Amino acid sequence: MATSVTPTCVIIPTYNERDNIESLLDRVLAATDVDVLIVDDNSPDGTGELADDYAAKHDQVHVLHRQGKEGLCAAYVAGFRWALARDYAVICEMDADGSHSPEELPKLLHRIAEGADVVIGSRYVPGGQVRNWPKQRFLLSKAGNIYASMMLGAEIADITAGYRAYRREVLASIDLDSLSRAGYIFQVDLARQAVAAGFDVREVPITFVERVHGESKLDGSFVTSSLKEVTVWGLQHRFEQLKEFTAVSADLVKHEASSFVAKKRRQRRRKAQ
């Protein structure tokens, strides 16, 4: 068994994941020495109760019950706050549907141990891959990531990815209430804010596998709203860059003008002598 280098909490939001949750927890606990927080949105299929039964037998597993389905971002924010309040040094995100392999979690934690502040399990860096996706979905995802990274100047190949490890300082520095609630766009929001704050964000290759059991919670309409938000953020980012460039250029012009005036004065003094 691999061990994590610091107290680590893996947050796994659930909604109707009864068919997946027990086997997933078995794999997480076998892969590395971490605590796990299940954040259940009052799943009608009894996922929360099943998680409670599992937690009663495993001290490393905890369950946070929420009143209803409020979206993935809200579930993660609740989990982040729970973990921050308990002083975990590293806080991770992982999907409940099996698309994120627990056996790859040590790779993310190893990068944290090496000094990274945020580590993203990436489908789109060398060595990363996606299995069981239709070609159209793959191309849409990859194109969306390229667009978001270019607009935000983030240089992250898989900025929408949801398999992540954070040092607590990163999440503690972000206004979690301000995160966008549209689809998975909060993942982009978290990454862009971490980059803007100067944190060390790295990627490691993972194999993303489409779920076998259950149904996807993602509505295709998220694409339009997400692209709108990324575009607004991107324009804001470019505007800030332009302001910085303008300020630097103005200082340079002032410096050159001052140097020119000083040079002319020296020339006049030499002539007068």
Rank of each mutant, 00 (worst) to 15 (best):
K254F: 05
E104T: 12
Q187E: 15
A2V: 14
Y166W: 13
V36T: 03
A272T: 04
T8D: 03
D251F: 04
D35H: 15
E203T: 08
L190I: 14
G79V: 14
A154K: 03
Q67D: 15
S249I: 04
D95K: 06
L242K: 06
I12G: 01
A247I: 08
D251S: 07
Y147F: 15
Y147P: 03
Q129R: 13
V248S: 06
E17T: 02
L109T: 10
A83E: 09
N16S: 13
F138N: 01
G115Y: 06
K217V: 13
D158N: 08
G127N: 00
Y15F: 14
Y163H: 13
F245V: 07
A30S: 15
V77K: 07
H62F: 13
L64M: 05
L140F: 06
R86M: 12
A272P: 01
S216V: 12
D41N: 09
L72F: 07
Y147N: 09
C73A: 10
F199T: 00
D53I: 03
Y166R: 08
E93N: 15
R123H: 07
L105D: 08
A31T: 14
A78W: 07
A165R: 10
D175Y: 08
D59H: 11
Q60V: 03
C9F: 02
V28F: 13
D53V: 06
V209K: 00
E70I: 05
L25N: 02
A157C: 10
R192E: 14
L37D: 08
E169T: 12
Q267R: 04
D52M: 01
A56Y: 00
V201N: 07
K243E: 03
Q236C: 09
L252S: 03
A75E: 09
A89R: 15
H213T: 10
F186C: 04
G46Y: 04
V118K: 12
S43T: 02
P126S: 09
L227F: 14
G121E: 06
A247K: 07
V195H: 02
Q273C: 03
R211S: 09
I120H: 02
D95F: 08
E256W: 06
V195F: 02
G79K: 14
K107C: 07
M1V: 14
M151E: 10
S99D: 00
H110R: 14
A30I: 14
E114V: 07
R27W: 09
I12M: 01
G68E: 09
H255S: 08
A257N: 03
Y147I: 15
A116F: 11
A165I: 11
V188C: 09
M150F: 11
E210V: 14
C92F: 11
K264A: 13
F260Q: 10
Y184G: 03
E17L: 02
G144A: 12
S101P: 04
I159W: 12
V130Y: 00
R270L: 13
V63R: 08
L190E: 05
I206F: 01
Q241H: 11
D158M: 06
I21C: 01
V188E: 03
V61I: 15
Y15K: 02
S149G: 13
F222S: 00
V125I: 13
M1E: 12
V188A: 06
I156K: 11
V34L: 10
M150R: 14
L37F: 09
